[in-house]
């Protein structure tokens, strides 16, 4: 992990930046140490954000999208009531065989105290998506405005390479649409009609899914992601896709 941090900083930043650089290095070390146990792998919480958005001092002005939609998932609040899954299916006409979001269950029988947890998953709307890179016809693409990974279903040839490329299993072939289908943060069904939340976030009784604009410093997602008191992580950081769905507890 420390090797990776060093590699991230291989770029020569010039002598005048040394104190700042050292400060960041030191901070990152702290973040790395506060990294939490998630899915069998120690992920440094904030260092993963550093890898996504450069350093925390600079990035606010550097968010590539406006609004930069993001979701923070409070993993410990999920009770698998699956109202989000139902709301998603109803809102986006997801057929019975498929899903755009799902709740996974992790049992740890020898854990102290709570022995079960639920992990909601959905498209991570990555900043460096594999799916859009591999699509031969640009049928899936990153929206230049808001960064949502969209589908242009008329162009989908059904080669399913995007499904192979996705490290989050967020895509499925929709036989009714004759195209691959995926979460688009309810852009066509809600956001573009003035709604502020995705269907799943609105349906959640436990405020597990917090949805908002990361480029807005006053937003809840911004405040939840850009703090160092509680661990924040992403799923499968090693896949290098720079996801925009974050996880936290508490």
């Amino acid at each position: 992990m420390f090797d990776k941090i060093k590699l991230d900083n291989l770029k020569n930043e010039g002598v005048e930046n040394v104190p700042m650089k050292e400060r960041r290095e030191f901070l990152k070390m702290g973040f790395a140490l506060t990294g939490i146990f998630a899915g069998g792998t120690i992920f440094s919480a904030v260092s993963s954000i550093d890898r996504v958005f450069a350093s925390s001092e600079e990035f606010a002005s550097k968010y590539p999208y406006k609004p930069h939609y993001s979701m923070v998932i409070h993993q410990d609040r999920c009770i698998d009531c699956e109202r989000c899954v139902e709301a998603c299916a109803a809102t986006n006409h997801v057929p019975h065989e498929g899903y755009r979001t799902r709740i996974l269950q992790r049992d740890v029988p020898d854990a102290v105290g709570q022995k079960r947890e639920f992990i909601p998953v959905l498209c991570n709307q990555c900043n460096l998506p594999q799916c859009t890179r591999v699509c031969p016809t640009k049928a899936t693409y990153k929206d230049p405005q808001n960064g949502i990974v969209m589908m242009d279903i008329a162009k989908c040839i059904g080669c399913l390479t995007c499904q192979e490329g996705c490290p989050y299993n967020a895509r499925y072939f929709n036989e009714e649409k004759h195209a691959v289908d995926k979460c688009n943060f309810c852009f066509d069904t809600r956001l573009s009609k003035g709604e502020k939340l995705t269907g799943c976030a609105a349906a959640c009784p436990a405020q597990c899914r917090v949805f908002g604009d990361l480029s807005d410093q006053s937003s809840e997602v911004y405040r939840k992601v850009h703090q160092i008191e509680k661990a924040v992580w992403v799923l499968r950081p090693e896949a290098g896709t720079r996801p925009n769905v974050f996880y936290t507890k508490g």
Binding site: D76, C78, I79, D80, E82, I103, G113, Q114, R116, F118
Partner: peptide, 17 residues
């Protein structure tokens, strides 16, 4: 006993449960 606003998934077994 542990407070009701902690350890949610200890009692909540969800749709799967």
């Amino acid at each position: 006993a542990f407070a009701s606003n902690t350890r949610c998934a200890s009692c909540h077994t969800g749709v799967k449960g």
